[in-house]
Computed example of a mutant assay.
Amino acid sequence: MTLPFVKMHAHGDDFIIIDRRGQDDSITAEIARRLGNRHTGIGFNQLAVVLDCTDAAARIKFWNPNGTALQTCGSATRGVADRLMHETGADSVVVRTDRGLLTCVRASGQRVSVNMGEPSLEWVAVPLAEPMDTLALPIEGDPAACSMGNPHCTFFVDDINAVDVAAVGPALENHPLFPARTNVHFVQVIDRNHIRLRIWERGGGVPLGSGSCCCGAVVNGIRRGLLDDTVDVQCDGGVVTVQWDGQGGVVLTGSVEPIMQGTTCAF
């Protein structure tokens, strides 16, 4: 079986898009693992599979490079929206993910905004293993947790360069407090509208950026009273903007750019 694909990135957070509209969804965990291998496959942080949908322009399913499914991906959602808007010439599009219906709009330049929906703040929705205050987890470093459709654990640190993310990330991802594992963020607050963020991504390692992690980190920073409602997030690969008024959906805005397109084999 051959699969046409488009590869894109959002400030280095790279993903591939496979459009299966009008066809069956043939992507399996094994295929995702093979395509995600950076040595023997294409390589990506996430795989987005675009499917037919009756109440939106398309439905999107997401895979990690290790073959695990994930519920949301802000970067790849914006990439799919960019491609769909190019198809129609429209400046907005609605797509369906496991987060529900998400509205995406064209912003200035090569940027796309997506309303990622409201964050989940209760322990059972993150999910955590037992009832507790999600603003103060009983883990060394006093992190906060929330869900953007996938779990997020945020540490606020004085010097982000002093954190060995690759060394501490795996144990935190698999901490027994997180039955579904978790994304891990390390945040240095520069000022109330600007943070520096480094990430250990559940099922993916250390990426140059992550849209949903940027959202989760800002949400937890606002809940802690550290940030205003519009924040520029400096990741290793570049800057995105996150807006949240404390009640409604979280809006993520940043650039998305195509890298290549081609056809790959999936056996």
Rank of each mutant, 00 (worst) to 15 (best):
I139Q: 06
V93Q: 01
T134H: 05
V114T: 14
P143W: 03
A136V: 04
D133V: 04
S113D: 10
N115E: 13
L102I: 11
V93L: 07
T154C: 13
P151Q: 08
V126S: 05
P127W: 03
P170F: 05
Q110G: 12
P131G: 06
R106I: 13
A167W: 06
D142H: 13
C146R: 01
R111V: 00
R106A: 11
E122S: 14
G141S: 07
A125C: 04
P151H: 05
G149F: 07
A144E: 06
S147M: 03
P138V: 00
A136I: 02
L101I: 11
A167Y: 01
Q110I: 07
G141L: 07
L121C: 04
L135A: 12
V157M: 11
V157F: 01
V163P: 03
I160F: 08
C153A: 12
A136D: 00
G100H: 07
V163R: 01
L101Q: 07
T154I: 13
V114M: 13
G100R: 04
G109Y: 00
T103R: 14
S108T: 11
L121D: 06
E118K: 15
L121K: 00
G117M: 08
M132V: 01
W123Q: 00
T97M: 03
N150I: 03
L137R: 06
V165F: 11
P119Y: 04
P119E: 04
A167R: 12
G141N: 04
F155Y: 12
T103A: 15
E122I: 10
P131Y: 06
V126I: 15
L102A: 12
C146M: 08
A107S: 14
N161K: 13
V112D: 10
A144C: 08
F156H: 05
M116T: 12
A129K: 07
N115P: 04
F156W: 09
A167K: 13
E118S: 15
S113M: 12
T103K: 12
A129C: 06
S108E: 15
C153M: 09
T103H: 13
S113R: 05
G149I: 13
G149D: 06
V94N: 10
A167N: 02
S92I: 00
P151I: 02
S108V: 09
H152E: 04
S108Y: 02
A145I: 04
P131F: 06
E140R: 11
N150W: 08
D164P: 13
L102N: 10
G141Q: 10
V112R: 01
A125V: 06
D159N: 15
V93Y: 05
N150V: 13
M148D: 02
V112S: 09
E140F: 04
H152M: 03
